[in-house]
């Protein structure tokens, strides 16, 4: 079955000459959540902007629900909601009117009950009569989301939806996304946070220099890179790793007071309990422990570095 979004050989060269997208092809299935990752300037916003109709591609085609975005744009756009990266709102308009307005633009009749539901789900109902200029940055971003949902889109684009949103709210927004997933909405989001892609996405795409380096199911990608580092802070410095603990892949920091231990989060036994037990048996007092996930950021930096090497090799060839 063809995906709800079919992107074929999409390219974009801006007027100034910047090649923002090169030959990107991808199929997105109905109901899935895709996270697009990539460094600043990778071309994520350009890709989204083309699909939504803000930017005209220089090559390739996009179909949304089978409708070509250039020739059958009305039908294509009816299916799409966009939350742009930059916050842009009418300053003197109330939240409620903003959302009603968008609903109208999409050709839908007034439905305040539905808008109430959307505003409540985004914790904006109390602010419905506030002017948007009176809202905080995070609230404004949620108003943008409410607007994007005003016409019940089948496909939702979220360009860095949680930039500038605090941690608690970020969690709430993930729940909103989860709710939309249950309603069968297809979601394409960009983010710089690994946690977010991990939390929400079914598949992850990595873009750099306008090329789509890979699109993979999240689990597969995390399996490849899903390692964690445990750092153990010791009460007193060690000269060297005790021989009883040798061969475990432990690393002692320069200062002698920190032990680092890499482990696979997916392994049946991470070996952490045994390690801590052995340290106690050796009479080594542990002061503190912390763990750090190899972030998707790191994952894609390693990918991106590889990509850069490959393209350098291509250029050389």
């Amino acid at each position: 079955m063809a995906g709800i979004i079919q992107i074929d050989n999409l390219s974009k060269q801006y007027g100034g000459g910047t090649r923002a997208l090169s030959d990107v092809s991808m199929d997105i299935e109905e109901g899935e959540i895709i996270a697009l990752l990539g460094p600043n300037g990778a071309g994520k916003t350009t890709l989204i902007s083309i699909i939504c109709g803000l930017v005209v591609p220089t090559g390739g085609t996009v179909r949304v629900g089978g409708h070509d975005i250039r020739t059958d744009w009305r039908a294509a756009r009816r299916m799409i909601g966009l939350v742009p990266q930059e916050i842009a709102l009418e300053p003197f308009e109330t939240v409620m009117n903003c959302v009603r307005f968008t609903r109208g633009l999409y050709g839908e009749g007034r439905d305040d009950a539905y808008i109430e539901q959307v505003l409540r789900s985004l914790a904006l109902w109390d602010k419905r009569d506030a002017m948007t200029k009176e809202l905080s940055g995070g609230m404004k971003r949620r108003v943008l989301i409410a607007k994007a949902l005003a016409h019940r889109p089948k496909v939702l684009f979220l360009d860095e939806p949680t930039a500038g949103v605090d941690v608690a709210l970020r969690r709430e927004m993930w729940q909103v996304v989860e709710g939309l997933r249950k309603d069968g909405v297809t979601i394409i989001l960009t983010t710089h946070y690994l946690e977010e892609a991990e939390e929400m996405a079914d598949r992850i795409g990595v873009i750099n220099h306008g090329r789509l380096l890979l699109v993979k199911p999240k689990d597969e990608l995390m399996g490849e890179f899903g390692r964690k580092t445990l750092t153990i802070e010791l009460d007193t410095a060690l000269e060297a790793i005790p021989s009883a603990l040798a061969g475990r892949g432990l690393e002692l920091a320069q200062d002698g007071r920190h032990l680092r231990y890499d482990y696979d989060t997916r392994a049946d036994r991470t070996g952490i309990a045994r390690l801590l037990g052995d340290l106690a048996a050796q009479g080594i007092t542990v002061r503190d422990v912390s763990t750090k996930q190899s972030s998707l950021e790191e994952v894609f930096i390693s990918l991106v570095d590889d990509g850069d090497k490959n393209s350098a090799a291509e250029d050389a060839a």
Binding site: C52, R74, R77, I80, L105, Y106
Partner: peptide, 17 residues
């Protein structure tokens, strides 16, 4: 004004010609 404030995007992505 929408061009200036950035809200022009809405007119460009919605099904209005």
């Amino acid at each position: 004004f929408p061009k200036f404030s950035g809200t022009i995007y809405e007119y460009l992505v919605s099904p209005v010609g």
